[in-house]
């Protein structure tokens, strides 16, 4: 808790300094616009990061196919909606597709490479991402299309920026997930088992943690999260297969901010990334490079994390 607060403090301080520096001479209302807009983008990164961390903690797999899974979900939902299927059913079907894909990958493919080291497991999931990307690009023409939710139409004004209910829903859902999953891990039996697995797999299996069941649960949960993320990306970013698939890379940056473990830190990190990226629009030399913000922040976090470590030993990850 103390660590989270400290991180929050550092981030707010950093963003404030950056805002004051870049926004010098600009009216405060302009700054407000960019901050609110940045929070909306940051919550996308955070949501993606949360899904990655939930799975990584329980199974040790950093799933590069999470973006692709969500992409399939939103395309499935779009297709059904376009065919006249009732919207909530189409969204449900999208989530179901993501669930099935994640479970299938976790159960039949990831399980067979359990003996590989974490990096190889992560990198191999790119293979699955490419398969899904190829499949969707093959099935769908590249005509421009738009995925919409009814909540896009309603909006509230925050600091002069209209924020749609979808974006509020996204921020609410991300915060809710961070709290909800936190409680699940903290309070429930399956959460305890997931934490045990995250700490030490071998000892967990020795003391009778049903690894297969826990992992399947984790894959399922991550599939649903990917599906939801995909629907949000499809609505708020754009409905293009390659774009949604590779958004997983900045989401990894958000996951790194949480050290692949802490969900509140992922949330803070993701939001910070979004706001910094948005604020950089005010900087003339850096504005066309502003999507670098997530990577630079994540790299700084990695450096800070390993500050003071002198040696590394085989077997440590």
């Amino acid at each position: 808790m103390r660590e989270t607060l400290r991180a929050l403090g550092i981030c707010i301080l950093g963003v404030t300094v950056l805002g004051l520096w870049l926004g010098a001479g600009k009216p405060a209302s302009v700054l407000g616009l960019f901050i609110v807009s940045g929070l909306a983008v940051g919550s996308l990164y955070a949501l993606g990061g949360v899904g990655l961390v939930v799975l990584y903690r329980a199974t040790g797999v950093l799933n590069l196919a999470a973006g692709a899974t969500g992409m399939v979900a939103v395309f499935a939902a779009w297709q059904l909606q376009d065919r006249g299927v009732l919207a909530p059913l189409a969204w449900g079907a999208g989530l179901a597709v993501a669930l099935v894909l994640a479970l299938g990958y976790g159960r039949f493919i990831a399980a067979r490479m359990a003996w590989r080291e974490p990096v190889v497991k992560a990198v191999a999931s790119l293979g699955f991402a490419l398969m899904l990307l190829g499949l969707v690009s093959f099935l769908f023409s590249d005509d421009p299309r738009k995925f919409e939710l009814p909540t896009d139409k309603a909006a509230v004004m925050i600091l002069g920026l209209r924020v749609t209910v979808t974006r509020l829903l996204l921020i609410g859902a991300t915060v809710g997930l961070v709290i909800g999953i936190g409680l699940l891990l903290e309070r429930s039996r399956i959460g305890l088992q997931m934490r045990a697995l995250a700490n030490n797999r071998r000892i967990s299996s020795l003391i009778g943690v049903p690894i297969l069941r826990v992992e399947t649960m984790a894959w399922g949960l991550s599939g649903l999260l990917s599906g939801f993320t995909g629907l949000m990306f499809g609505d708020l970013v754009r409905l293009e297969p390659a774009v949604i698939t590779f958004l997983v890379i900045p989401c990894i940056a958000a996951a790194i901010c949480g050290r692949l473990a802490s969900l509140p830190l992922v949330l803070i990190g993701g939001m910070t990334m979004g706001v910094v990226e948005s604020l950089l629009t005010l900087s003339q030399p850096l504005k066309d490079l502003r999507p670098m913000a997530p990577y630079v922040i994540a790299a700084l976090v990695l450096l800070a994390m390993n500050r003071g470590r002198a040696l590394t030993f085989a077997g440590e990850e």
Binding site: F34, S37, A40, V41, G274, S278, K287, P291
Partner: peptide, 19 residues
Amino acid sequence: VLLNPASPDVNSALLEAVG
């Protein structure tokens, strides 16, 4: 106003255009 195709953020470009 220039947009990087890799970024999910189109809002800031919109704000920049307005600005």
